[in-house]
Design a protein around this nucleic acid. Sequence first.
DNA 1: CTTGTCATAAATGGTTGCAATATCGTTACA
DNA 2: TGTAACGATATTGCAACCATTTATGACAAG
Lengths: 225, 225
Amino acid sequence: MPQIVHKTRTQVVVEILRERILSGQIHAGEPLRQSSLAHELDVSRIPIREALLQLEAEGLVKFEAHKGATATELSLTQMDELFELRGLIEPTLLRRSVPNLTAEHLATAADYLEQLGHALQQDNTIDSWSELNGLFHLSLYAGADRPHTLDMVRGLNTNSDRYIRLQLLLAGGRPKADQEHRQLLERCQAGDADGAAELLQHHIQSAGISAKNLIEAQMLRSHSK
Amino acid sequence: MPQIVHKTRTQVVVEILRERILSGQIHAGEPLRQSSLAHELDVSRIPIREALLQLEAEGLVKFEAHKGATATELSLTQMDELFELRGLIEPTLLRRSVPNLTAEHLATAADYLEQLGHALQQDNTIDSWSELNGLFHLSLYAGADRPHTLDMVRGLNTNSDRYIRLQLLLAGGRPKADQEHRQLLERCQAGDADGAAELLQHHIQSAGISAKNLIEAQMLRSHSK
DNA sequence: CTTGTCATAAATGGTTGCAATATCGTTACA
DNA sequence: TGTAACGATATTGCAACCATTTATGACAAG
């Protein structure tokens, strides 16, 4: 019984715009006009504005007074920054979490992992894979009891998501990540916090590197034509 | 020629409210009514709402749909979280920054440090000390070239600021921090990144511990009466 | 006396319209 | 020909008003 919840229009708009930016439907640097969005989504401009403000806090748009909002584009160095932060924070979280993980926690993590496997062969692959990937990672941090930090990690993930999706799109699935995920879960189940943390760090680092390579290739291609 | 800058009302309101929360003028848990704030600050409710949204992103208020906004209160465990994150991120930033610090960077850092010394003997001690403290720390990270991370650290600092100020108020100055600051700057000047990073970690950790002790004492006192 | 329902009040969420600001093309002038 | 001032236009910022939701309290039934 999902207890009907009244979403405000602002929240709805936030979700729509976030999805559009992450999916690449709105691409980086593109200006987001309040009026046109308002007209298109059939709401007034106030919810649009507030949505844009929230998205700015998430780092997905840049909001300049009297100039309008634009979808942010992450430069290569900014990607470095993102993955460096994740590589710093997430293993620490995991290390704290592992000793406190209950069987239930591990079960949901395993569930996500299985769904991840299925997601690769389905239709709307990319979006669901990306979401499940985030959920899997976060579920492993449930034992850390660090809600604020978790929010922060969620934010970092959201930001790197665009490039993860791009990576999925161009590289066609990620068997390597899947393998690493399984090993990671194994370590967690075994209660090996340090081993798990180390694996995770490699995992994040390699994801960062391959995302970066992809972007570089992309940039070269677009420059050469 | 400072190129007159037009602040929007929203920005003005954000600054006023942030200062009120950090200074304790608005204390934790206190509800923030849009109407009364709008009347008091002589603006409509729209800028107030947008300001509250921004402050929510900073973690200073909690904004619940249809229920209103309240100033957040940080529990002890949340403080732990905050200082743990700072202790994780800031030393890493510093280590990356030190090798790239120019003489100019170091000069401004030294300048802030001197101002910090003066601030202790003046009137509006707490507010300016707190601000200068943040500026000093941030100035040392200028060489890291990590703008996004810097923003994040700024946010963490803002959140811990309330308790730093409380600490200053009750403990009356912080000669210990001053000493540590000097040593820190020394290490940076000497180009000793690892030493500086280690010092910084201790510095943050001890600040966290003493803040925590203070809060605990505070809670005991209020419970006992 | 407790409890559930309904009406009323208060606060927030959202729409429309107007004012302020930036952008860009045009024109005048060096 | 280049540049600087200027004005039209588009876009954002803000205020006043209306709609919706939540909280409060009275009142009646058990």
